[in-house]
Write a protein that binds this DNA or RNA. Structure first.
Lengths: 208, 208
DNA sequence: CCGCTCCTAGTCAAACTTGATTAGCTGCGG
DNA sequence: CCGCAGCTAATCAAGTTTGACTAGGAGCGG
């Protein structure tokens, strides 16, 4: 799974209705271009693709107020809402060493209820541990790990990363259980998108 | 940069001359299908693409000994050798949170000289640290980090991963400086590919 | 009010990835 | 010795990603 669909669905969902450029701006606001493949082409493609698949509903709109080609606004269908939560849960649970997917899911984790978020993160830890033992058991040759030479460093690297990820996830669970952040059904949700016309404070000030 | 070109160049280089299925088998032997997008399609595509670009030289060969369509053997051109080392150095130095690229580079690090490997890894650490401070300085709003709400967890996640990566890299530098592994120009190189006809001990025993 | 630059919004071709599928050969049960 | 399962080796179409490019308006200096 690539992160782009989750990001785009999340952005459109928070707006209720949004056009491509707005989504693009939100992703930049979130810094997504730093840690995911959120290029314009990918974003517009994802919007069109998901509209074709019935996950988004497209509304043709008159040429925009501020120059440029005519805009299209999108909103989630019911299938889109389901797809969104499916992707979100999946991203939180599965360990595939894809930083971008996890980052995107973190940005939307408060759309879940607190208890479910914790439960999914626990499953994530279990997945990491399962993956870890599969790798260690499978890739250590019978003649002992010395057999592997420098190739063993690859495994070493995976394991180190996996352990780091598990540890961090435990920390996050702790923070969430201690009451941090506002989750679904707990009051005024955190606003993570830019209002129409609001300036993006992070635009182009990037450390690229 | 995707890892596939580096992997394919590395495999072909170790054989001197190799056909697609051989490369495919090596990558499986290395476990690359676990941590990179090394699917058959990608491998054959990379071979053809690189042949078109003059990085590899293609030799049409009579239909294979063991059934199937006619095979094509490839070998590196001089440009290919340069490209290989360029990709390898680049993968070691640059920090882009892509596990697959780093894993591939680790598998080929001994093609460099020991001193250069250490030097590149030091540069890697510097790159990680630069990235880290760019992120912390840039993405903490003036009103303080509380402003970010749960979005701050994304940053937290990056930072944790970056720090873990730096720490691991320091460990690797230590091992290399203590004389581990056999690097270029230090004698009989480690053989990391399967000979023609040799059985792949990891084939299909996969923990998928 | 001319020309220039910047911003908005999106398109496009080329490259890459994916997963299914093809096609030839070997070995083996019946 | 027929058929067919399974292996070898590679291709293909569909989907995705990339990064450069288009095109129209706004602001502004002179």
């Amino acid at each position: 799974m690539s992160a782009i669909r989750l990001l785009v669905l999340g952005a459109v969902r928070q707006h209720g209705r949004a056009h491509g450029y707005q989504v693009r701006n939100d992703l930049e606001y979130w810094g997504a271009h730093e840690w995911s493949n959120a290029k314009p082409g990918s974003i517009y493609h994802a919007l069109k693709q998901m509209a074709k698949q019935g996950v988004l509903l497209a509304h043709e709109i008159a040429p925009s107020t501020a120059g440029g080609p005519p805009r299209t606004e999108y909103e989630l269908t019911e299938a889109g809402r389901e797809e969104y939560f499916r992707l979100l849960r999946d991203a939180l649970v599965s360990y595939d060493q894809k930083m971008d997917v996890m980052s995107a899911a973190l940005g939307m984790i408060v759309d879940l209820e607190r208890a479910e978020a914790v439960e999914l993160l626990r499953q994530r830890i279990a997945a990491i541990e399962a993956w870890r033992s599969a790798v260690t058991e499978h890739y250590v040759p019978e003649e002992g790990p010395e057999q592997l030479g420098h190739i063993g460093e690859i495994m070493n690297f995976w394991i180190h990363t996996a352990d780091g990820g598990a540890e961090w996830t435990r920390g996050l669970i702790g923070r969430i259980e201690s009451g941090a952040y506002v989750f679904a059904g707990e009051g005024e949700p955190f606003v993570g998108v830019l209002a129409e016309g609001q300036e993006n404070p992070y635009a182009t000030k990037d450390p690229d």
